[in-house]
Design a protein around this nucleic acid. Structure first.
Lengths: 184, 184
DNA sequence: AGCCGCATGTAACTTGTTACATGATTTC
DNA sequence: GAAATCATGTAACAAGTTACATGCGGCT
């Protein structure tokens, strides 16, 4: 049920459609949750049926209409309960690491290529996260931001985790590329 | 199908039963994949039906018999194909981060407690990983180990990723505990 | 003319989770 | 005497993935 809670959390920041959420789940929410558009549409339907959110159709010119959603009191209550519950330990599942573990002499070049591609993806994510960090800090130091106890404190902290994660990915990819002999 | 590949990778290191794998998936494999015993038993059955592994019943005194599995040529071939395939990008799903994102003034104490518990879990994992690292290095420096191009190179590299991940968890938990006001 | 972005959805399928069941032995 | 460990499994359910479908508007 945590996809549901991730959606509830996202909807505390405003009124969004399934499509909007799909984009958000690719950028800001990406630090801590992922979902495909299909998962979101399905879950929004169910949440609507369960009375956690209300829908509104926004008519648009030159574009398809959208259905945007807002939290109800029941939705807020459900999120409140979730936030104080015991979280499940995270499940890491990384195909690339399985490949590295099972790597043999012949497969080194292919694995090396995969690691090089991951390096690029992580660097790109890191740049986007750093941009958002700059935006949240708005010129303040981290320490100052944290003591000012802004309404975005939670977002900043999750973003900090995302940044550290991608920095580690970059460092690890570099370690692997150094350790694996290049192909001739 | 990556659970299947993670199992194939584990079976390259020896002959294991479902129960053995469940334990391994809690320690060494935990860096890059997780699975419950039930998932393992089901997947092992299917892999057996598909001819990727062969089973052998080991009679034991004073303990229930076990069914251990070994890779077949077909199993090795399937793993070989997987290792050179394009890996799926990883999906992060961390309930605790959803909670931090959705945190409100009233829920701070509960979230703080969850973070404190995560800190302890990460520190414990880190200690186990560091022990295994010491064992793999066997007195050598990392640089020396990497150039010697040991057969455990892959395991070392995935372990390095796991260690970095838990170190970041510890640092992040400490940041959050410092940033969130303690309860009275 | 063809692709990309916007916007929502159905259907089939694969994975992952949870609860339950069994029964002997070892440890506190 | 109770709990933990060893060892395997069934069944029901929840969550996640993949493929397909629709149709307009803007860009190259």
């Amino acid at each position: 049920m945590a996809l549901r809670d991730a959606i509830l959390a996202a909807l505390t920041k405003g009124e969004y459609s399934g499509y909007d959420l799909a984009k958000a789940f690719d950028v800001t929410v990406a630090n801590f949750w992922t979902a495909t558009p299909q998962q979101l549409y399905r879950e929004l339907d169910r949440m609507h049926q369960d009375g956690l959110i209300v829908a509104r159709t926004v008519e648009q010119e030159k574009r398809p209409n959208k259905r945007t959603y807002t939290l109800t009191a029941a939705g807020r209550a459900a999120l409140g309960e979730f936030v104080v519950s015991t979280p499940k330990p995270i499940a890491i599942r990384d195909e690339l690491l399985v490949q590295v573990e099972a790597m043999t002499a012949e497969s080194v070049p292919a694995v090396r290529d995969s690691v090089a591609r991951k390096l690029e993806v992580s660097q790109a994510k890191l740049r986007r996260y750093e941009d958002r960090r700059e935006y949240l800090l708005a010129g303040r130091t981290e320490h100052r931001f944290l003591v000012e106890a802004d309404e975005n404190l939670g977002s900043y902290l999750t973003l900090a985790r995302g940044i550290a994660f991608e920095q580690e990915n970059v460092r690890w990819c570099e370690l692997v590329l150094d350790a694996l002999p290049e192909r001739d």
